[in-house]
Design a protein around this nucleic acid. Structure first.
Lengths: 336, 336
DNA sequence: TTGTAAGCGTTATCAT
DNA sequence: ATGATAACGCTTACAA
């Protein structure tokens, strides 16, 4: 039934070239200690037979896979794929292969992902996850899998972490709005169910700021869909004719802008919107979206570089922070 | 130096529970033929020791990895990550792990990716690639790696393929524009260097259509960057005050729309734009972009389903086609 | 320089 | 129901 050729093994190469396994192994690993003549002979049969070493067997023998496990929530977000892009760039440059693990919201699932990362025998892992608990990361780590955790503060022998600081920039923005007294619009935070740790941290910052100055605010639940949010806000704007909205992603922010305009409101005069996870679309959309920004591609690259250092036992700075920068654009009012 | 615990092996579990390897193996694989008592005993020590089977060793012994190789060009495009999302969904549901390979433009690189896919010992591969040649796919295939190829017509014993048909919809659109006589604007195709096979096929269709009716057109080279394209078109619109533009992606199309508006032109009155690879941003952007659309998440899911059938030797329809649908929105004129 | 043989952690085929 | 043992394809001392 198997009409396709079986994998050629090192044995067959050895036999066909009239040498031993060890010699073939030396040739493919360029270990030296092989005469030019035999090397050429072996290389010729490798070419002729189309031999490709089995990464599996090699990994089992050396316990080095050159595989890096990458754990992400959905691959469906622009900022996540930007990060993935950064990771792939460095991985490619440094000769690593990536194994992708996607988590969902359930606890059960998180456990199964942890399980898979461990059994996969990756050399290291990069975990961007809003769902996994600290203890999950520790589990992975306890199985000798050096890990870079993104968006969670974790310390350990073979762990590094990268964190985001949106809080500072957000506080600055809110403070500035207060000082300039342009916060006459009711502040509204767009809450997305199960959107993870990053968003809730930012939400807390938002809440704390307003509580501290004893100012009222609203939390508005939205679906994580720009289409739904658009329609929700068409409704919303029937009763509420202004507001300052903090939205998680560009597409959600844009939905609000569109709903506002389609409800006869002006942006930013009546409705102001900022996006937390800004992408290039913040600049493409009209009006341009005021947004916070972290270069996720850089985050991905940095994570890989840190992991590589960690693998070599040379990671000095185990913690790295990316500060979000805020760029005011057309969806907010600068001065009163 | 290695302060972290070594991996627990099946040997240690066997010894600790006072049984043989074989019994432990039976327990973890639920093969039966084990008394409840011993099973419980073994399960207890597995739990106690924190034993996780090595996927590597298991794969070597069974030659089943449950890994699927996924080959893509850059992870940085929305439509690619949409597809990846679809792939991850099904992979997760069916218990497969994904290994990611990213190609670049060079021939050299394509070869190294092929090499890696083979040595990685994946059970199957999904290849979306505008760069790999037919012969590369055949190479992979000849190493017993069942493959689903996206965006290339390839036949073979253990290959399936998924193709896109933008040509029909594009021809229809162009024909309709001609009939309704709204093609008074000079048609311009946005050519992106090295953007791959999909775009060049569409470009050919565009060219052929106009050649066939002996109508002039322009090919305009743009960078694959919305920012650059925006500035290029600010220049362009200094001399050219109208046009019908066919752009590869939403972000490029949006750049043209923005440049047109910022040059005092009206969309769609003076400048019309359509996007070939439409994403949700076509609906979010204002004016909405008229665009072609293929649900890439569905493509990803379909690819996985086809691959799974292929692995079981049950793939009947080895070829599947996704027709692009065209949706006219605000960036084009419907009627004269 | 080259070959022999043990080992990597499993599964699977026999016996028992 | 359980246990030896070979096999998977490779690397790597160690011996020659």
């Amino acid at each position: 039934m198997d009409y396709l050729k079986d994998r050629v093994t090192i044995y067959e190469v050895a036999k066909a070239s009239g040498v031993s396994l060890a010699t073939v192994s030396r040739v493919i690993n360029k270990r030296g200690n092989v005469t030019d003549a035999t090397r050429k002979k072996v290389e010729a049969t490798i070419e002729r037979l189309g031999y490709k070493p089995s990464g599996l067997a090699r990994a089992l023998a050396t316990s080095v896979t050159t595989n890096i496990g990458v754990v992400i929530p959905s691959a469906n977000y622009v900022y996540i794929s930007n990060m993935l892009h950064g990771i792939t760039e460095v991985a490619k440059e440094k000769g690593f292969i990536l194994t992708l693990f996607v988590t969902s919201y359930s606890r059960e699932d998180a456990i199964s992902v942890v399980e898979k990362v461990i059994t996969s025998h990756v050399d290291g892992a990069i975990i961007f996850d809003d769902q996994l608990d600290k203890e999950d990361v520790e589990t992975i780590n306890s199985y000798s899998v050096p890990t870079i955790v993104i968006n969670n503060k974790i310390v350990g022998q073979r762990v590094g972490c990268i964190n985001f600081n949106h809080e500072h920039a957000l506080n600055e923005l809110l403070k500035e709005r207060k000082q300039k007294n342009i916060h006459h619009k009711p502040p509204v935070f767009l809450h997305v169910h199960n959107a993870g740790r990053l968003l809730s941290r930012i939400e807390k910052t938002f809440i704390k700021f307003h509580n501290d100055i004893d100012m009222s605010y609203r939390i508005f639940n939205v679906d994580d869909s720009s289409k739904r949010t658009y329609f929700d806000f068409l409704e919303f704007f029937k009763k509420n004719r202004n507001g300052f909205f903090v939205a998680y992603r560009d597409s959600i922010a844009a939905a609000i802008v569109n709903a506002a305009k389609d409800s006869g409101l002006e942006v930013p005069k009546d409705v102001e919107v900022v996006s937390i996870i800004g992408t290039k679309y913040a600049r493409i959309l009209r009006p341009n979206l005021s947004s916070f920004y972290i270069n996720m591609q850089e985050v991905g690259k940095r994570a890989m570089y840190m992991l590589i250092d960690l693998l070599k036992g040379e990671l000095i700075e185990k913690s790295y922070k990316f500060d979000a920068t805020y760029t005011a654009r057309e969806s907010t009012i600068e001065k009163e």
